[in-house]
Write a protein that binds this DNA or RNA. Structure first.
Lengths: 225, 225
DNA sequence: CGCTAAATCTTTCTCCCGTAAAGATTGTTC
DNA sequence: GAACAATCTTTACGGGAGAAAGATTTAGCG
């Protein structure tokens, strides 16, 4: 019945077989008792990992609650005990995407040169989008419009934008927010155009992604016209 | 089996095309018979108009072949005689979106001041996205990645980008393409952030849309840091 | 240890979707 | 007017979202 196992995503404690020949042995796996071991191990994280895997294989449009559940090795109705709806699951996936973006941006905060900091933020942003295009689409898709329904998503999104604002304000204390919006819009639009393939086949040679992001941001900082 | 069904189909849709001036009415029950051709004039354009209407009411995610067909007053299978699939219909809707963008950009080609021309292009672009957010999402959604399957969509998209390149090249003949990509990315990202509501509730006062687009483009042209 | 209640997971069901296939209807052409 | 092609409808099938109810495990408590 439950022979199917997720290929390479789950590494948590698997549910023990139905029969327990040995007496009750307290599992010592962590110094603190995990507050979440239940039937499946914890299915919630497994579902999120499975959703990431499905995004990689099937793309953002082909993601399905049933497919995610199957990838996690549970029935198609099991996710409803951990997420209110498919959108709720996807919003959590998007939130994790923002958290990964924040983690990728974190090293730039140690740079003292504000200009170089902004340039590297641009590179990281566009690289992140290209590395995980489906998640990127999810992060900024229609779910973000409903961020009031998903407070965790909203908080993560605002935190990531806050890092851009901080860098821009360091470079231009007077009009930092505007500069942040300029840089963010530029990188966001470039990311979208890149991952949507809008720039392919346009008889236009393009430098590598990171270099392109840096070049355009440099030109925006120095003035392009 | 009910072979002859009374024409109880609703006509709530805004159908303006009437290629047949004298449609013979098989039966007259209303004092004012709407000139609806028995075999539905040309359904193709009606479906495209209906799709636009559905986009307005239900949003980009809630668009459905059945809903479009219902809005056009035909059965849910009728569209298959004019479009190969739902994606084919949506690609045509996206193509019309690009054509509308091209039409909106057309007046800017008469400007002789290249800088002002680029600034107005920015305004038009972002205004267009805000005025038709669902169509905008469709135009640059996953369908654009498959533009090889929809040559008309690809041509319209390239034409619109060509207008930006032309304006940027007029301002900077040496690095016009790069400048066009900078301006396009900036406006594209700003449009996305605006219509996705990413900038709402961020404790950040924003000027009106068109002014914001102009300000950011000006700063990119003049240098921001 | 046994019992009860709550949480988790599965099965089943309904409704809606895209779309293929076949039947019905209309316009066209000889 | 009859055959034909185009158009539209009906019916059907597979699949997905989600609700409802049953089954199973775990926790809580005596």
């Amino acid at each position: 019945m439950k022979a199917a196992k997720s290929p390479a995503t789950v590494e948590k404690t698997a549910a023990q077989p139905a029969k327990k020949p040995a007496p009750k042995t307290p599992r010592k796996r962590a110094p603190v008792p995990p507050p979440k071991p239940y039937h499946h191990g914890n299915l919630r994280d497994s579902l999120l990992d499975a959703a990431d895997a499905v995004l990689l294989t099937h793309g953002a449009s082909g993601i399905t609650l049933r497919e995610v559940a199957k990838a996690a090795g549970v029935s198609h109705a099991a996710p409803y005990h951990h997420f209110a709806s498919l959108d709720d699951l996807l919003a959590t996936v998007a939130e994790r995407g923002f958290q990964r973006l924040i983690a990728a941006l974190e090293p730039t905060t140690r740079l003292t040169n504000s200009r170089e900091r902004l340039l590297q933020i641009s590179e990281v942003y566009v690289n992140c989008a290209r590395a995980h295009p489906s998640q990127f689409r999810l992060m900024f898709g229609p779910l973000l419009s409903r961020k009031r329904e998903f407070p965790a998503l909203q908080i993560a999104a605002e935190r990531s934008f806050g890092m851009v604002v901080a860098a821009a304000t360091a470079l231009d204390p007077r009009r930092g927010t505007e500069l942040a919006l300029l840089g963010w819009s530029l990188c966001h639009g470039l990311s979208h155009l890149l991952i949507d393939g809008a720039l392919e086949g346009m008889s236009m040679p393009l430098p590598p992604t990171a270099l392109l992001a840096r070049q355009l941001t440099e030109r925006a900082l120095d003035g392009g016209g």
